[in-house]
Structures are given as structure tokens and as C-alpha cells.
Design a binder for these strands. Structure first.
Length: 865
RNA sequence: GCCGGGGUGGCGGAAUCGGUAGACGCGCCGGACUCAAAAUCCGGUACUAGUGAUAGUGUGAGGGUUCGAGUCCCUCCCCCGGCACCA
């Protein structure tokens, strides 16, 4: 009997050996073939969850694959350590956020280490450490000097009871999460970063990011939202009411103007009209999130003011409308209800005139009561009811009207972006302090470089009402750096997206306390492969691209694009189970406590809770979350099955970009495979050690087995190295091991085939299951670590097949198969296909119209009915 | 509401460039081993009909292009991610 597979015994000593040898250390100076493999760093929430587990296993597989191919790899790890959850935990437990956060980091670091990831821990960083965030502050001051950082007012969610600013997440159905009070919009001064100054470059740059998923590039392009159009002035009350439009061709269809409730014209109208003032005040209730905003019922009120149409001179009523955004364009629109869906709905609701000015070149009838998509068309249209512009198409209409407005000084061509400048001020304690001192005489003064960092006091406990920094004189009180007078510090901290916008440039030089980055950063950047959740497709990735460009412009790095290749992993899902009480309230039970009965077909027949044996109901497959109690703890599974089994299942169950459904029996299956692999390699080892393989001397069975091995080598290398479809690489290894275990070894040369096969499989699966691979590799007689074992190379000659199976179709339906040597000519294949028994039944007495031959693959015989 | 993605057996998924739909795994059914169970091993498993060879049907729904469509095009339905203060 061979020793059974016991990961609890084999895994820890292997990890200790890696640690002792510092096996995952990356060089400071990378060479030409080095590879920077980066995962999105975790928020230290307390425990490693399955999403982390999946993310870091993906990057570890890629890292180990490149290491086995002889490339130096940097795979670092750090902590996105500032943020709201620490303040919530602090409130709940009365513990300072710093203490809670650092405890979580220590625990999660241990959990990561137990998974055997090839991480260079010497480069670990945490964004809550002053030696990291001082460089946020340093670059922020540089941005102030360059005008990239500036101050203006912004709108936030205000809880009138707690007198505090709320995050969008803390606003539930328009009410504060703790107080239940109706949330209000409030304008406060904030710092902004002028990302819009980079809008064009950020958009252009997407074209060259061919290592990024198309969908992410599309989402970013739409987010930046470049529109070419016109700024048009409508004279109004002695001033110019400016609007931006992409459709100046429809100007003759403008029947009213709509301005945002925060627009200066609206505020002016409110001073003389109580109803307008009341309306504007009613728009101030509710939160600031765009999703909420877009779901609002469209409402408005006439200001009584009129604007003059720049072409016709007609008077257009000016309305205040809640569907106009102050933050886009000019905060005002010319409403063309005939050809804009939102204007159309609004005009119908308030009985405002609707005029058709666009008509299809041929066709559809215009109906002023029912909206049609073609009303907004730009192609195959002509202008109507537009006076001298009648008959022009979109482009000609645009040019004609634009030209006339330019001549009269009432319009100019302009490009408008949807992207807004990045507001980075947060009215929160647990974040990086914004390095500003407020002096009664000098105003807002940046903290000089030699006084950085502004260190966040770590002992405070927030209470949900305002920022505790404001009540901490040791932090607040200081001297003005300019005049020396007593002054006060800024209490706002930075958005945590600032922390995560450049951490990957700090890993290479994490020990440098003289500079933000150094030569080593330049050498390692850009990141070769970035891996993280699809939920970061827009904000984080766009901010990081922006921040990298700022660092480039300050002369710190040479690259503009930080991430050459991007892999966006899907979410981790699990079953949900519940019981419902009389009132319809649901109690959710963890899937690990549920026992499922299946019928003869394998469908779920019934399910009971293990704890009381009573039934529970299936609630569908959902994202692992506390609210549905369907989270599975990776740490528990690791202690039960070992790291390799958990890693294997998470890579095998789905391709990385898709969502992954957790399944306990699936984990069992991965466990069984590793047990079999262990057993089969040991059985092979019980036989005499074979001599050198003589490929030319193999019989058909031996040659066929060897072909499978080399096909598996070729496929696994392609799947892991190019396609990133780890699930199919694993399936190929499983399939090959099934064949190898059934391979009838009849001579020493056969045994040499088996040895070559097992040595290949152990290495092919090593990036996924490094512990068992290293253990088996040693037992197969090799002394080095699995990372140094080298990636197997396939032998082209071994892939050649004597006979191929060719499918024969009649009218596109498979009717038979024939055997033919590769490269057979069309005539022979056609003849063989027609003489196949079943095929001839379908062809006889029919007229053959055409025969399509796909060489070495398929024949399709097209016959008439 | 807007932007993006997805939908294939009982389940997770495979089919890489328009060419054999269902690899691999789970589950289920049958068998071996066992006093018995677990574990393990062997065989079967899209659906319908048939002992079988085989035939018909089948990739969310409906239409189209093609010798041939899971894959391309159009319309629709459902699910998921993001929407700027969750990270």
C-alpha cells in the first residue's frame, strides 16, 4: 500500500521550504523577459472571501506559469486599508478603525499564506500607513501647483438628524440608514482633480489597449462620453442662456427651454416667485446618486421667463425641470420634444408644444402622441417645418445652422464630455488627510513638502455624526506655513480611489522613504497582467489611468497606460436556502447546513436543514453575501481539503471571466482527482524506473498514448499561457490522466511513455496545485522546487496521426464517419464518403447538387429533395 | 432610466476562425468489493421513439443569412454588473 494523499501533512512543510528559500522574491531590476503580475489588492474586511480566493489563484496560476517558463515575475500584495467599513465597525465595537484594520490585515495575511501563493511578501504595503499615504499628499500638492487639483462646491447627501454627510450606500430609499431621516442634497466646498483635462487622451488611449476586454474599453469610452456639438446662446432677461446640444439641426423644433433646479436662472426666478422656490426646494430632497435621479418622475415648473430663439426670434418659455443635470453641459437644454424622448415625455405632461422637424427620407408617419425611436435618427432623414433648412440631411442641416449661429455670434462648435472632474474630498475620518491648512489671513495653504506627511491620529472612534478629526485639537491646531499665525487643518480626507490609483507603482520601491517612486518602478512598469473584479471596469481603472498620466507629466514615470493586459474575473455565487414565517419574512440558511435529496434524474427533490431535519426552500443562485447567508469560508475548506483542492476547484468550475457557482460536491470532485493523481503516480513509481524513451520503437497503442500526452502539453500551455481558460487546461489534464491510468504497460519502453506522461501532467497542473505537484515531482526523482522544474515542451512529431476521422453530412446532418490519412485529396474523400453505408441510403435516388469538403474534417453532400 | 455583459443536459461548464453540440467534472442509474456502510473501482447517462442499427427533436423566444449557425444579422423576453461617496 502506498501512503494516502494527506495534504495536511505535505502542504505545510512545502510552504515552509518556499519561505526559507525566499522562493517568491522578485528581482529589483527586471530583465527583458520579466513579468509584472498584479491582482487588485483587497480591502481588509476581516476574512478572506471566495472572491479574493479566486482572484489571487488566477494571478498565482499566471505567475507560476511564467516562473516555470523561466521568467522573473513580480507578484506583490498589499491592503486597500482606508474606507467606510472600518468606521462602521468602529462604531459598532467602540474600537478605533486603525486597530480593527490592522488586526484584519494580520489575519488575512495568514490566510493568504496558507494558500501557497507565490507572493513576494517583502514588498507588502498598506495604504493606511503614513509612509504610503504621504505620497498621496505630496502628489496632491504637486497637482495644486499645476492647477490639476482645485476647489469648488459639490453636492453631497446630507442627513439632517445626524448632521453628517452620507455615502450613496448609506442612503436607502432616500432616507439615512441610521436615522431614517429624509436625506437632502447640500452644497459644500470640495477639492477636485481635473480628470476632464485628460478626457481626450484617456479616450484615445483605449484604442491601443488591445490587451483589455472589449467590453471594458466600450464601457470606459461611453463613460467618458465625447460629444461633438454646439454651444448655443438664447438671449434671456438681458443675459445669454447657454445650452449644449449635439443636434443643432433640430433647432427649429425647440419649443421651450429647461434648466436644472440649481441653475442661476432658476435661482433668480425663485426670488420673485414662491411656487418656483418651493419647487426647487422639493428637488433638494433625496440623494445624489444618478440611478436614483434617473428613476425620478419628470417634474417641472414654468419660471415665467422667456428666452429668444436665436434664429426665429420667437419667445420660448423657460422651465425648471428635475430631469436636467447641473453637472452636464451648461445645466440647461433647448427642449426639442419632437425629437428627444425625455423632452417629449415632459412636453406631453405639461401640454407644451411639440413640433416635428425631422422626417425619414422615405416612410414612417409621425405621431405626436406616441414616441417612435426613429424620431432621433441621424441617418436617412431630412429636415421639415424648418423654413429655409427644409430638405437638408443631418450633416447639411448641422453645418447650415451652425454656420448661421457662428455668424451671428450666438453659437460655437464645441466638444462636450460626459466625464466630470473627480471630487476627492470625503467628510470622513478614516482616510488620507488632505494636506491643507486654513489660515485666517492667508486662506487655504498647502502643507509644504518638508512637513509631510500630515499624519492621521489613529486613536479616534467615530460616532456617526460628523468627523472626529474636527474634535481633535492635537490634529486641528497648527501654524500657518506662510505667516506663522495660528491656523486649523483641513478635516476632509481623500477618496480611497486615490489610494488605489497608484499602489502598483509603489510595490517595486516600497522601501524608498526619499521618493514616491524610483528607477525600479520605471523598470517594472507597466503591469503586464492585471486581474480583478469586473465591478471595477470603469471607476478604479479610469482613475488609475488618469493618475498614471499625471505622474508621467510630473516626470515620475515614463508610461501613460499602467495596465497592459487586463483580466476581469466574474463573481462567486452560491445557492441560497430559506424558510418563511407567517408574515412572509425570510430566514436564510447557509448552504453548508443544508442536505439535498435528488430524484432519479438528479433534480432537487427536497432539502432539509441538518440542524433540525425540517425542510428548507431553494432561493436561487446568488452572489455570496451576508444578507443571504450563502458565503462559504475558504479557510474552512482549506483546513478540510488542503489548499490545492480549493485552488483546483475555483479554477476548474468556470472560466475566469464568468461568474463561478460554488458547489460542495464540485469541491469533492476536485479532491477525488488529486487523490487519484497521487495514487496513480505512486503506482507508477512502484514499477521499475524505465530507461530512455525510444519513440520510434513504439507500437500503435504506445504511440497513441504518447500523442495524447503531447496534445495535452500543447493544449494546457496554450490554455494557461494565451487563452487564460484554466478550466479547459485542467479538463485536458484530467482527461489525459484517465488515459494514462488505463494505459496497458507491456514493456520498458511503454513505461517510459508513462513516465514522460506523469512527469508532464504533474508539471502542467503545478500552477494550479503547486503543493501536490512539488511533492510528486520530488518523488519522481527531482530535487528542485516545482517552480524550477521547467514547463513541459511538446514534440510536434508525436502529434502526427496516421488516420483521421472525417464526418460525412448529407444536407448538413451527420450521417456517417469515414477514416482517411491526413492530407487525402478531395476526390478520394468524396468517393469514400459516398460509399459509406448510411450515407448512401440518404443519397440514393437523389440528385447530388454540390459536395463541400473541408480537408481532414468534414464532407457535406448537398442533395435535392 | 442610461451604459456593459450573459442565457447550452438534472447541475457547473466544453465546442479557440461559420464545420461532429454536450469534452471534463458534479449528480443520478446499474454493477463489483463488503456481514453492512463509507471509501474505491467498472459501465451507462441531452430528450423522444425503438431490443438494436438508427430516426426525429434540441443551445432563452421568434424571424433571417448560409451547403452548414450555440457561433453572424434583426426583433423580443429574462438574469447579472456599473452609474461618479461601497470597495
Amino acid at each position: 500500500m502506498t501512503e494516502p494523499y494527506n495534504p495536511a501533512a505535505i502542504e505545510p512543510p512545502i510552504r515552509e521550504r518556499w519561505t526559507a528559500e525566499n522562493a517568491f522574491r522578485s528581482p529589483d531590476q527586471p530583465g527583458v523577459d520579466s513579468f509584472y503580475c498584479l491582482s487588485m489588492f483587497p480591502y481588509p474586511s476581516g476574512h478572506l472571501h471566495m472572491g479574493h480566493m479566486r482572484n489571487y489563484t488566477i494571478s498565482d496560476v499566471i505567475t507560476r506559469f511564467h516562473r516555470m517558463n523561466g521568467r522573473p515575475v513580480l507578484q506583490p500584495m498589499g491592503w486597500d486599508a482606508f474606507g467606510l467599513p472600518a468606521e462602521n465597525a468602529a462604531m459598532a465595537r467602540g474600537v478605533p478603525p486603525a486597530e480593527w484594520t490592522r488586526g484584519n490585515i494580520a489575519h488575512m495575511r495568514d490566510q493568504l499564506k496558507e494558500l501557497g501563493f507565490a507572493i513576494d511578501w517583502d514588498r507588502e504595503l498598506a495604504t493606511c500607513n503614513p509612509d504610503y499615504y504621504r505620497w498621496n499628499q505630496w502628489l496632491f500638492v504637486k497637482m495644486l501647483e499645476r492647477g490639476i487639483a482645485y476647489k469648488k462646491t459639490g453636492v453631497v447627501n446630507w442627513d439632517p438628524v445626524d448632521k453628517t454627510v452620507l455615502a450613496n450606500e448609506q442612503v436607502i430609499d432616500g432616507k439615512g440608514w441610521r436615522t431614517g431621516a429624509e436625506v437632502e442634497k447640500r452644497e459644500i466646498p470640495m477639492y477636485y482633480l481635473a480628470i476632464t483635462g485628460y478626457a481626450d487622451e484617456l479616450l484615445q488611449g483605449l484604442d491601443d489597449l488591445d490587451g483589455w476586454p472589449e467590453r471594458v474599453r466600450t464601457m470606459q469610452a461611453n463613460w467618458i462620453g465625447k460629444s461633438v456639438g454646439m454651444e448655443i446662446s438664447f438671449p434671456c432677461d438681458g443675459e445669454a442662456l447657454k445650452v449644449f446640444t449635439t443636434r443643432p439641426d433640430t433647432l427649429m423644433g425647440a419649443t421651450y427651454m429647461a434648466v436644472a433646479p440649481e441653475h442661476p436662472l432658476a435661482l433668480r426666478a425663485a426670488r420673485g416667485d414662491q411656487a418656483v422656490a418651493d419647487f426647487i426646494r422639493s428637488c433638494a430632497s433625496g440623494g445624489v446618486s444618478e440611478a436614483e435621479f434617473a428613476a425620478l418622475e419628470k417634474r417641472g415648473i414654468d419660471t415665467g421667463l422667456t428666452a429668444t430663439h436665436p434664429l426665429t426670434g420667437r419667445a420660448l418659455p423657460v422651465w425648471v425641470a428635475n430631469y436636467v443635470l447641473m453637472s452636464y453641459g451648461e445645466g440647461a437644454v433647448m427642449a426639442v420634444p419632437g425629437h428627444d424622448e425625455r423632452d417629449f415625455a415632459f412636453a406631453n405632461q405639461y401640454s407644451l408644444p411639440i413640433v416635428q422637424v425631422v422626417a425619414p427620407v422615405d416612410g414612417d408617419r409621425y405621431d405626436r402622441h406616441h414616441w417612435q425611436d426613429w424620431y432621433t435618427a441621424k441617418d436617412n432623414i431630412r429636415l421639415v417645418h424648418s423654413g429655409k433648412y427644409d430638405g437638408l440631411d443631418y450633416q447639411a442641416g448641422f453645418e447650415a445652422i451652425a454656420g448661421e449661429l457662428e455668424a451671428s455670434g450666438l453659437g460655437r462648435r464645441r466638444t462636450q464630455f460626459r466625464l466630470r472632474d473627480w471630487g476627492v474630498s470625503r467628510q470622513r475620518y478614516w482616510g488620507c488627510p488632505i494636506p491643507i491648512i486654513h489660515c485666517p489671513a492667508c486662506g487655504d495653504v498647502p502643507v509644504p513638502e518638508q512637513d509631510l506627511p500630515v499624519v492621521l491620529p489613529e486613536g479616534l472612534v467615530p460616532d456617526g455624526s460628523g468627523n472626529p478629526l474636527a474634535r481633535c485639537p492635537e490634529f486641528m491646531d497648527c501654524q500657518c506655513p506662510r505667516c506663522g499665525a495660528p491656523a486649523q487643518r483641513e478635516t476632509d480626507t481623500m477618496d480611497t480611489f486615490v489610494d488605489s490609483s497608484w499602489y502598483f507603482m509603489r510595490y517595486p520601491c516600497v522601501d524608498n522613504d526619499e521618493a514616491m517612486v524610483d528607477q525600479r518602478t520605471k523598470a517594472w512598469m507597466p503591469v503586464d497582467q492585471y486581474i480583478g473584479g469586473i465591478e471595477h471596469a470603469i471607476l478604479h481603472l479610469l482613475y488609475a489611468r488618469f493618475w498614471t498620466r499625471v505622474m508621467r507629466d510630473v516626470g515620475l514615470v515614463e508610461v501613460a497606460e499602467p495596465f497592459q493586459n487586463l483580466l476581469t474575473q466574474g463573481m462567486v455565487l452560491a445557492e441560497t436556502w430559506y424558510r418563511e414565517d407567517e408574515a412572509g419574512r425570510r430566514t436564510w440558511y447557509n448552504p453548508s447546513r443544508v442536505d439535498v435529496e435528488r430524484d432519479a434524474k438528479g433534480s432537487i427533490a427536497s432539502a432539509v436543514l441538518l440542524d433540525d431535519g425540517k425542510p428548507v426552500h431553494f432561493g436561487g443562485i446568488e452572489k455570496m453575501a451576508k444578507s443571504k447567508n450563502n458565503g462559504v469560508d475558504p479557510a474552512e475548506l482549506v483546513s478540510q481539503y488542503g489548499a490545492d483542492t480549493v485552488r483546483l476547484f475555483s479554477m476548474f468550475a468556470a472560466p475566469p471571466e464568468q461568474s463561478l457557482e460554488w458547489s460542495d460536491s464540485g469541491v469533492e470532485g476536485s479532491w477525488r482527482f488529486l487523490k487519484r493523481l497521487w495514487q496513480q503516480v505512486h503506482e507508477h513509481l512502484e514499477q521499475p524506473t524505465p530507461g530512455d524513451l525510444d519513440a520510434a520503437a513504439l507500437d500503435d497503442a504506445g504511440r497513441e498514448m504518447r500523442r495524447r500526452v503531447h496534445e495535452t502539453i500543447a493544449k494546457a500551455g496554450d490554455d494557461i499561457g494565451r487563452r487564460y481558460t484554466f478550466n479547459t487546461a485542467i479538463a485536458a489534464v484530467m482527461e489525459c490522466s484517465n488515459h494514462l491510468s488505463r494505459f496497458d504497460v507491456r514493456c520498458d519502453n511503454d513505461r517510459a511513455v508513462a513516465r514522460e506522461g506523469w512527469e508532464a501532467l504533474v508539471r502542467l497542473i503545478a500552477p494550479v496545485t503547486p503543493h501536490i505537484s512539488q511533492a510528486l515531482w520530488h518523488r519522481l526523482g527531482h530535487a528542485e522546487d516545482i517552480l524550477g522544474a521547467g514547463w513541459p515542451q511538446h514534440d510536434e512529431a508525436a502529434l502526427v496521426q496516421q488516420q483521421l476521422t472525417i464526418v460525412v453530412q448529407v444536407n448538413g446532418k451527420v450521417r456517417g464517419r469515414i477514416q482517411a490519412p491526413p492530407g487525402s485529396d478531395r476526390k478520394q474523400i468524396e468517393a469514400a464518403a459516398l460509399s459509406e453505408d448510411n450515407v448512401s441510403r440518404f443519397v440514393q435516388n437523389k440528385q447530388i447538387r454540390k459536395v463541400i469538403v473541408v480537408p481532414d474534417k468534414l464532407v457535406n453532400i448537398v442533395v435535392s429533395a
